[in-house]
Design a protein around this nucleic acid. Structure first.
Length: 380
DNA sequence: AAGCCGTGGAG
DNA sequence: TCTCCAAGGCT
């Protein structure tokens, strides 16, 4: 008794798995902001933000972003700077640049109409195989499997899948096996059910198998080693770098530079500086960086603060110094732009986390020195 | 193919 | 303090 529109040879077990999954999802699905609506724009924004990012982290960003850019038209019409500001602190900033560029293209080339095929979605910057499938299944109800990290983990355990799902061959294999499970007309629920299951029960460490609706079908559970799946590659050691940054104040303003649009933290603003080279002192590094990036000669003053930070592929210790310009006028030589900004207006610019901490420090320093001044004046 | 790309929370 | 890693995509 084959159902229509499905691959042939769907077994009773495969049907039972999908049924158990969907039944569990009906009662256990998480109430998330982007699940309260079904328009492609909202789903798209959520999917971009959720890349490699926890739900709890995304929610406040999502709410603010949709309030600020309610429609595709609003997003396309906005300056990139405002989109980056809305993204500030969320990380992986290329997502914001790609999202903005894609919105502009959708408006210009399609009159604001969203694609309805995988191939068309994939042509948009920032849209990969997962996101295209997720949007089409969730927002358009198309019968397409969307495998994210959660779904991959759930399925790898369900099948005790011994290949590496990050490699193309393993990925294709898992995709095919997932498609056999997909109940037609319910791909959106099916995909999200796998994600919720992976996020809440079938977690990377200490999965809560006793509560799992798929326990009876799970090969890894039967073997007693669910944590062994999916197979993962060993981690590499993170290199460490010493980095310097300069705070240059003049006439009540502080100098900030915008990072090049491409590459790490692209388009964000920072206090200029850079990596210390072998055999170089912190002061020498800062002088060299400011000469190379801004074309100015500086005198390095007092150290202000030291920050540690871990990025995806390196750790840094950031040494922040006050600096004074000896000669030259700052120009955007090794950066996208340069600006003198009153400390009170720094919050208009998008900074990476480390520089946000410097901004915070400057504000406190400013208010405390203001307190000192006020106290001093009152005594005079 | 494999390295790059942020951040914060959990354990 | 340290490791792991979360609704991936780009080059």
């Amino acid at each position: 008794m084959e159902r229509e529109g499905k691959p042939s040879g769907i077994s009773e077990v495969e049907r039972a798995i999908a049924e158990a999954l969907l039944r569990w999802y009906e009662t256990h699905r998480r109430d998330l902001p982007w699940r309260r609506r079904r328009d492609p724009y909202a789903i798209w924004i959520a999917e971009v933000m959720l890349q490699q990012t926890r739900v709890e982290t995304v929610i406040p960003y999502y709410e603010r972003f949709l309030a600020r850019f309610p429609t595709l038209q609003d997003l396309a019409a906005a300056p990139l700077e405002e989109v980056l500001k809305a993204w500030e602190g969320l990380g992986y900033y290329a997502r914001a640049r790609h999202l903005h560029e894609a919105a502009r293209r959708l408006m210009e080339e399609r009159g604001g109409e969203f694609p309805r095929t995988l191939a068309e979605w994939r042509r948009l910057p920032g849209v990969g195989p997962y996101m295209a499938a997720a949007i089409l299944s969730i927002a358009f109800g198309q019968d397409i499997v969307a495998l994210d990290g959660n779904a991959i983990r759930v399925l790898a355990r369900l099948f005790a899948f011994d290949q590496d799902p990050r490699r193309p061959a393993g990925r294709r294999q898992l995709q095919q096996r997932a498609e056999r499970l997909l109940p037609s007309g319910q791909a959106g629920a099916f995909n999200q059910a796998l994600m919720d299951l992976g996020a809440t029960l079938c977690t990377p460490k200490s999965p809560r198998c006793p509560e799992c609706p798929l326990r009876a079908f799970c090969a890894a559970y039967a073997q007693g080693n669910p944590e062994a799946f999916p197979v993962r590659a060993p981690r590499r050691m993170l290199p460490h770098y010493d980095v310097t940054a300069g705070v240059i104040e003049a006439d009540g303003r502080v100098l900030i530079a915008q990072r090049p649009l491409q590459g790490m933290l692209g388009g964000l603003w920072e206090f200029p500086g850079g990596k210390v080279e072998p055999g170089e002192s912190l002061e020498e590094c800062l002088q060299r960086e400011l000469r190379e990036e801004l074309g100015i000669e500086v005198e390095v003053g007092e150290p202000l603060l030291t920050l540690r930070h871990t990025y995806t592929h390196m750790r840094i210790t950031l040494h922040v110094f006050r600096c004074r310009i000896r000669s030259g006028t700052p120009q955007p030589i090794g950066c996208a732009d340069v600006r003198w900004v009153p400390i009170a207006e720094l919050d208009r610019y998008a900074f990476p986390r480390t520089d946000q901490r410097i901004v915070e420090w400057l504000r406190q320093e400013g208010s405390s020195s203001l307190t000192r001044q006020t106290t001093g004046r009152s005594r005079t």
